[in-house]
Design a protein around this nucleic acid. Sequence first.
DNA 1: CGCTATTTTGAGCCGCGTCAATACGGGTGG
DNA 2: CCACCCGTATTGACGCGGCTCAAAATAGCG
Lengths: 248, 248
Amino acid sequence: MKQTFGNFGVTELRNACSRCSLAQLCLPMGLSEAQTRRLENLVQPSSPLHADDHLFRIDDPFNSLYALRSGCFKSYTVDSDGREQVLGFHLPGEMMGLDAIYAGRHRCNAVALDTGTVCELPFDELTRLAAEIPELQQQIMRLLSKDISTLEDLVADHTADERLAAFLLGLSSRYQHRGYSATRFRLAMPRRDIANYLRLAPETVSRILARFQEDGLLAVERRDMELLDLQTLKAVAGEAHKLVAAQN
Amino acid sequence: MKQTFGNFGVTELRNACSRCSLAQLCLPMGLSEAQTRRLENLVQPSSPLHADDHLFRIDDPFNSLYALRSGCFKSYTVDSDGREQVLGFHLPGEMMGLDAIYAGRHRCNAVALDTGTVCELPFDELTRLAAEIPELQQQIMRLLSKDISTLEDLVADHTADERLAAFLLGLSSRYQHRGYSATRFRLAMPRRDIANYLRLAPETVSRILARFQEDGLLAVERRDMELLDLQTLKAVAGEAHKLVAAQN
DNA sequence: CGCTATTTTGAGCCGCGTCAATACGGGTGG
DNA sequence: CCACCCGTATTGACGCGGCTCAAAATAGCG
């Protein structure tokens, strides 16, 4: 029974916000049942992306926002010297492409770090619906504003220790909100990407992780991370604990 | 004739977007004459702020966005160690408070660097109007998205030279858009604030300015700045030339 | 005309980047 | 099942950009 055809498939492909477990983290947050159904009608079907598949690239015309449904994505720019600048990691329920609204073209690349699916939201339809549903308009603005807050935290100049501790705590918190363990998780990204995101060298990340492990703050084995002392990690992160390490 | 009373004053106090020279940079951008008049009806009168006057502070409840009408403002946070983190400098026509939408409370302080006036826009009224005027809804989202783009540029890790050159070019461009000289302007902020914004030490900013001057790229005397070689400055700024050095 | 804040200049140092070598691990083919 | 390969991660040695500390110039202001 591997293949089912007929009009059965159409509703299968369409991502139904009203039945999505992420609804309370994602765009439908705060919307009524009826409003959510109107929103889900504009979600475009999309097939899964695999590791290294790009969702969009710099200068692509901006037509849609994307909500991540499963998997983990990375957004990044490439500067004039050809060097990558990681802007954020995205977990299920988070939006991608928000920075493209202003210029009308994508300002960064978005690539899958593992297999995942996205919900495509055509922007003109979305804004039309937002004009009719005040709660949706409000929610879009809140998501945009949240991205600004996150980036404001990221630009603050902190030491390498503070940045890394804050990054791990941010991931922890985001996994927890999604129903996963706050203390044990698998890093979807290589050290190089973590380092780049935090504006550090990969060697520095490696050394600090080793030291945190010596100090009993965590246990890390390649991509497998276990946070052992959240209290001290928060102290190390200092003010940077607000660095939720997400968004664009 | 220094004092005029009576109902004459009421319309004086109200800031009329339709007669404001900044309309094409600010929120009314892209709005029709009629739409602009509806917008200006919700602008709250406000008296001028002087240097060091705060427009809002961290944790103040968020009720309004503010558009700068004249003067120059600085937004900044204070971390757990009591150290300032400058988030941006704001010129006339730019918005302040956008990062507060998400949390419902202000996430930064906004302070006047010199005497200036702002237009207060009550956020609930603004969103109500935005639901009726699609162009306004669009414009608000564009401004939010622009802030994200600006911060994305700021987080990129560049050398001190690149950062400072990009900062000066960003100011130049913003002054030019407002009808002022692109090459001669007065810095509204002390070195300390410039350095903090660029995540550098004030001494570093001072030294680099001295070197830029030796190299004939600019002439600077305290707050008075003249850019002499935009071409080379752009080359120094490299990719960072997009750092418009503004917004939140 | 002194007082104070700002800016500049100098000297030394340290956190983190760079370079280089090694270790590890997962995948592939024999 | 093992040998090999190659990308990822770790570890060590060293250098440098920019920070810190200190002090001198300069300007604004009462």
